[in-house]
């Protein structure tokens, strides 16, 4: 439904965003957009500013200049905690599950802003259906789970609000190769179910296989953009990110 009616609608738009940590600039004139139903990726090396973009979008680091629009609404000056209510699901870098809460409590926190009890139940069931492993471990403290399980929990937590846009900050870091593949398959599957995704990644190779479009971020600037195919065929991208 979403796919057909809103194919061209912009979900997210960053306009000329500058961000700073104290006096050091981390983002310089970043403009990107994500349309309904798309899977967009932002590629960049360590320290390029990928996480900073995510923090700006989530309201954890307010941009110094520029605007961020979500569903046409200007987010400038709005606190981080309105994001989930508006439909942004966030999978932070390094998973960041609440270590001393159980799996189920973590998921409930994901759905913290759901007003409707039935929606909470339903989405909990949905999360368990997607990740049966989490259901087996629902009473277990998140800190005692393996890295891969925590990654699944972080994704499931973000799905609890049935997000309009899923923001993922590096799906692959710190996981063994087999789990990296699994994680990419999971988000590819979520995209096929109609969820709009913005993924920031270092693993360009994998990201460009699942995304529709991509941007390349270098030291805080967007230097290239295009469809995944264009980027995969681009010499500079191949040289810098895809290896030989």
């Amino acid at each position: 439904m979403r796919l057909i009616s809103g194919r061209m609608r912009k979900v997210l738009k960053l306009e000329h965003v500058d961000a700073f940590y104290d006096r050091s600039q981390a983002l310089d004139d970043v403009s990107i957009e994500v349309r309904e139903g798309e899977f967009v990726t932002i590629l960049g090396a360590n320290g390029a500013g990928k996480t900073t973009i995510m923090k700006c979008i989530m309201g954890l680091l307010p941009p110094r200049n520029g605007r961020i629009l979500f569903g046409g609404e200007d987010l400038t000056g709005r606190p981080a905690w309105v994001r989930t209510e508006m439909g942004m699901g966030y999978v932070p870098e390094g998973r960041r599950v609440f270590p001393d809460l159980t799996v189920e409590e973590n998921l409930r926190m994901g759905g913290y802003n759901l007003k409707d009890h039935r929606a909470l139940r339903r989405n909990l069931e949905w999360a368990y259906e997607l990740f049966p492993r989490l259901k087996e471990r629902r009473k277990q403290l998140a800190r005692t789970m393996s890295g891969g399980e925590q990654q699944m929990l972080a994704i499931a937590r973000a799905l609890m609000i049935e997000p309009r846009l899923l923001l993922i900050d590096e799906i692959s870091t710190g996981l063994m190769p087999i789990l990296v593949n699994h994680s990419f398959n999971v988000i590819k599957d979520l995209h096929q179910r109609g969820i709009t995704i913005l993924l920031v990644e270092q693993n360009a190779n994998k990201a460009l296989k699942v995304a529709d479009r991509g941007y390349v971020l270098e030291i805080g600037r967007i230097t290239l953009q295009g469809t995944s195919r264009e980027l995969r065929d681009n010499e500079e991208v191949v040289k810098a990110y895809l290896g030989s």
Binding site: M58, G59, L60, W81, V82, Y90, M109, Y112
Partner: peptide, 8 residues
């Protein structure tokens, strides 16, 4: 920070 991002 994450509590904030989850809507708290």
């Amino acid at each position: 920070e994450i509590a904030k991002a989850m809507g708290v």
